[in-house]
């Protein structure tokens, strides 16, 4: 029990540090694309500490307080249910106690908590953003769930550990080569999941000032930042496990997650934002059609 607790704390802290560092790298790379010097690599840590130590003298109700906790819990929950390094007894955490279906549920736990908290804040822009977010979520959840279903049907298991072990024995065994269309669809849904351009209709600073967190300040915001960093890393590890053969060692984990993290950076700085209906139409049509090809192949 103590060992599990220590592992949980260390995993969460490690994911937080790694997530914030990845955020720093992405800011520096975006600045280079713009031809700027850009912020320090550690800027996100400085921002987080500053926010944590700022005064929080306002609140708007119980759900408003709980939403950042939901976000953090959602992030840590997904992280703990995913085996981080295949075969490592310490870092499997609680991956034995839940399968892919539980992870799918937990992935939306934080977002739903955030939606309730933002609704409690009473800010009109927050409510607009929540309705946009839930609509977009229902759009990409369809194709992501279908991609996961392709894996489950194709490999005959819902357990992430079994999915990872089915991909061992060579790069051509990875699901990205076995189920290329489902992987492509899942990679498209990775963009709205991370709220990057062109799908960032929820946090659209020029349209609806920052969306759900409009009323969130100081310590609340620092918890939300931490939750987002941890959740980001959890999603990276999940995608590596599902489609890119899992990670057998620290080095392969870091390389694979870093490369996967870089992928939205090639898309987001050069695309403008979709309108809500464009985003939903795209997500319902393109990734769903892609995943349908693999689904038919698996069923037939």
């Amino acid at each position: 029990m103590t060992r599990l607790l220590v592992s949980v704390i260390l995993t969460s802290l490690g994911a937080l540090v790694y997530g914030l560092l990845l955020g720093g790298v992405s800011r520096v790379i975006t600045a280079s694309i713009h031809g700027r010097i850009g912020p320090r690599l550690t800027q996100n840590f400085i921002d987080l500490w500053k926010l944590f130590r700022k005064e929080s003298s306002i609140h708007h109700g119980t759900m408003f307080w709980m939403a950042p906790m939901f976000r953090l819990t959602g992030g840590i929950g997904v992280l703990l249910l995913v085996p981080i390094i295949a075969g490592n007894s310490v870092l499997t955490n609680m991956s034995f106690s839940g399968d892919l279906l539980l992870v799918l549920y937990f992935m939306f736990f934080g977002c739903l908590g955030m939606a309730l908290g933002a609704g409690d804040s009473g800010h009109p822009y927050a409510v607009v953003a929540v309705s946009r977010g839930l609509l977009q979520m229902s759009a990409y959840e369809l194709s992501f769930s279908a991609a996961v279903l392709v894996l489950a049907l194709g490999l005959g298991t819902f357990s992430i550990e079994n999915i990872v072990s089915a991909q061992q024995g060579g790069i051509l065994n990875w699901n990205v080569f076995r189920f290329p269309f489902a992987t492509a669809a899942a990679l498209i849904t990775f963009l709205p999941m991370n709220m990057t351009y062109p799908f960032n209709i929820v946090l659209a600073p020029q349209e609806i000032p920052i969306g759900p967190p409009t009323e969130y300040s100081s310590r609340f915001l620092s918890f939300m930042f931490s939750g987002r960093a941890i959740f980001g890393v959890a999603k990276l590890i999940l995608f590596v496990n599902l489609f890119f053969g899992g990670a057998g060692s620290w080095s392969s984990l870091l390389i694979k997650t870093f490369l996967l993290y870089m992928y939205p950076l090639f898309v987001s700085p050069v695309f403008p934002r979709f309108r809500t209906e464009q985003s939903v139409r795209f997500l319902w049509f393109v990734p769903t059609s892609l995943v349908a090809v693999d689904l038919l192949r698996v069923i037939l």
């Binding site: 800011r27 600045a31 713009h34 031809g35 700027r36 010097i37 850009g38 912020p39 320090r40 800027q43 400085i46 921002d47 500053k50 700022k54 306002i58 600073p205 000032p209 920052i210 967190p213 409009t214 009323e215 969130y216 300040s217 915001l221």
Partner: peptide
């Protein structure tokens, strides 16, 4: 802009007073 680049000092714009300094 790239010419002045205030982000190198850690300065950023926030759209809401709740989150700014």
């Amino acid at each position: 802009t790239s010419r002045f680049d205030m982000e190198r000092f850690g300065i950023a714009m926030r759209p809401t007073p709740r989150q700014s300094d």
